[in-house]
């Protein structure tokens, strides 16, 4: 089973379904119509090509011919023939920089860092970025259309409950953990103990300073006494 085609098929279906949920999607697609954009991800060297029409996006993962020097059975379906990828715009991108691509302000920075290379019409990439950022997806609406009113609101209600419960658990867990470390495990000192400790340190330093001053005075007195003794003997 060609996995790449299975995944690109699923991605294409999802992307086009999602587009329909924003009534403005055609406004975003219009400047992309009849354009194509290839994205090659490094270091995996996987190329995905997007073909745009005014209505939808088609996703293709170009397949290389098996080694044509031999005619034996081949199962290698990776890598595309370079000349098979003739697009209006071709982005070659480090996979680690994929998330930064949404922000068009980052493009120059990524290019300088050698994480991104753009060949062809940059406007295609900019229009795609505008589409991704501009499309407005309302999850409740999507679920309502897909599942119906009642299940959608039930799911959203339950999701909100789970979210607030998780938030409560998260905050509570932090407090409980803090208390456990201080009171039970005694791995972390309580604020009072720390204050006491600081006071004790200050006291100790005070007494140390006083003792040091006394020692100095005694040393000076002894030096003076020695000096006087030597003078009277003369």
């Amino acid at each position: 089973m060609p996995i790449a085609q299975l995944l690109s098929g699923a991605a294409e279906l999802t992307a086009n379904e999602l587009l329909q949920f924003d009534s403005d999607y055609q406004t975003y697609l219009a400047p992309l119509a009849e354009k194509s954009l290839a994205i090659t991800l490094l270091p995996v060297d996987l190329t995905v090509v997007l073909f745009f029409t005014a209505e939808r996006i088609d996703i293709s993962v170009p397949v290389n011919a098996p080694d044509t020097k031999t005619t034996t059975y081949k199962n290698d379906t990776s890598d595309a023939n370079a000349d098979d990828i003739a697009c209006d715009c071709h982005l070659t991108l480090q996979i680690s920089a994929l998330s930064e691509l949404r922000d068009t302000n980052q493009l120059t920075k990524l290019i300088k860092q050698d994480k991104l290379d753009i060949v062809g019409d940059l406007r295609v990439a900019q229009h795609l970025s505008a589409l991704i950022n501009g499309i407005n997806l309302d999850l409740t609406e999507i679920l309502t259309v897909k599942l119906g009113d009642v299940p959608a609101h039930t799911i959203m209600g339950v999701t909100h409950q789970i979210q607030s419960y998780l938030r409560y658990v998260h905050e509570h867990a932090q407090i409980t953990l803090g208390e456990a470390l201080i009171e039970e495990k005694k791995w972390v000192a309580s604020p009072l103990a720390i204050a006491n400790y600081c006071d004790e340190v200050t006291d100790t330093r005070y007494w140390c300073d006083r003792i040091a001053a006394r020692i100095q005075r005694l040393e000076r007195q002894q030096a003076q006494a020695t000096h006087d003794d030597v003078g009277s003997e003369k």
Partner: peptide, 9 residues
Amino acid sequence: IWKRFTIDS
């Protein structure tokens, strides 16, 4: 999927 593979090739 087979047809997608054909088009992608």
